[in-house]
Amino acid sequence: MDLFSDSISWAEKLAPIITQYKDRKHPLEYQNLYQLVIMVILSAQDSDANINKIAPALFRRFPNFESLQHTTHDDLFPYISGVRHFQMKSAWILETAQLIKTDKNIPLTMETLTQLKGIGRKSANVIMKESFVKPAVGIVVDLHVLRVAPRIGLIPATKDGNKAEKLLMQLFPRTLWEDVGMCISFLGREICRPTNPKCPGCFINAHCHYYNNN
């Protein structure tokens, strides 16, 4: 079966996982927009679980952007040293704090968010989705989506998140952009694992290229 030319739309095929996951909160355990922005910056090339682990102490010491205004790298390092590339991310955070100055100035558009250091389209899409910015202007494409989308037959394999996002945006109506990326991500985290995927229990195995060709 050629899943790329199947007459059934991918919106219909993925309806079960959208129903299952669309209301699921992002795995980053943030309490407000400030925390979300900082945690998204820190999570690049690191796990959400690790960022959740270091976050409580970090935010007790630095509860808002105002508290980061006059902070030095030496002040910040002890709280984020367990994060990959923490020195680079410290520079991003402090530069962002100098630019934003206060939590009320946190931007919520793709153009303004991606001007901040450490925030690309994926991170901006996460921030806007979690902030209920509508209509969505893009689709969240994290490492799980980059792995799962080609596996199930949605798009060709690529390591370029922006390219993958553009391809997915062509496949789905804009009404689904807000949810579909994170729904695929949750599928990848829970069922469509890198090794030993739980294919028999998958909600969409009838339409999956991997399942139907292995």
Results as ranks from 00 to 15, higher is better:
Met1His: 04
Ser5Tyr: 09
Ser7Ala: 14
Trp10Gly: 11
Thr19Ala: 12
Lys22Cys: 11
Asp23Trp: 02
Asp23Ile: 03
Arg24Tyr: 05
Leu28Ile: 14
Glu29Trp: 05
Tyr30Cys: 02
Tyr30Ala: 09
Leu36Val: 03
Val37Lys: 02
Ile38Met: 11
Met39Ile: 01
Met39Thr: 03
Val40Phe: 01
Ala44Asp: 04
Ser47Lys: 14
Ala49Ile: 05
Asn52Gln: 11
Lys53Gln: 12
Lys53His: 13
Phe59Gly: 02
Arg60Trp: 00
Phe62Ile: 08
Phe65Thr: 02
Gln69Val: 12
His73Gln: 13
Asp74Tyr: 09
Asp74Thr: 15
Ile80Lys: 06
Ser81Cys: 07
Ser81His: 05
Gly82Leu: 03
Gln87Lys: 13
Met88Val: 05
Ala91Trp: 00
Ala91Phe: 00
Leu94Asn: 11
Leu94Lys: 09
Glu95Lys: 10
Ala97Gly: 11
Gln98Cys: 03
Ile100Gln: 01
Asp103Lys: 03
Asn105Ser: 04
Pro107Lys: 03
Pro107Asp: 04
Glu111Asn: 13
Glu111Gly: 05
Thr112Asp: 15
Gln115Thr: 13
Lys117Glu: 09
Gly118Met: 10
Ile119Ser: 00
Ile119Asn: 00
Gly120Trp: 01
Ala124Thr: 06
Ser131Met: 12
Ser131Arg: 09
Val133Ser: 08
Pro135Val: 15
Val137Tyr: 04
Gly138Glu: 06
Val140Trp: 11
His144Ser: 03
Val145Asn: 07
Val148Phe: 10
Ala149Leu: 02
Ile152Tyr: 07
Ile152Leu: 07
Ile152Asn: 06
Ala157His: 00
Ala157Arg: 01
Lys163Asp: 06
Ala164Ile: 03
Pro173Val: 12
Glu178Lys: 15
Asp179Ala: 14
Val180Gly: 08
Val180Ala: 04
Val180Arg: 07
Met182Leu: 10
Met182His: 08
Ile184Cys: 08
Gly188Val: 04
Arg189Ala: 14
Arg193Met: 08
Arg193Val: 06
Pro197Ala: 12
Pro200Val: 15
Gly201Asp: 14
Cys202Glu: 07
Ala206Pro: 04
His207Ala: 07
Cys208Asn: 09
Tyr211Asp: 05
Tyr211Met: 04
Asn213Arg: 14
Asn214Thr: 12
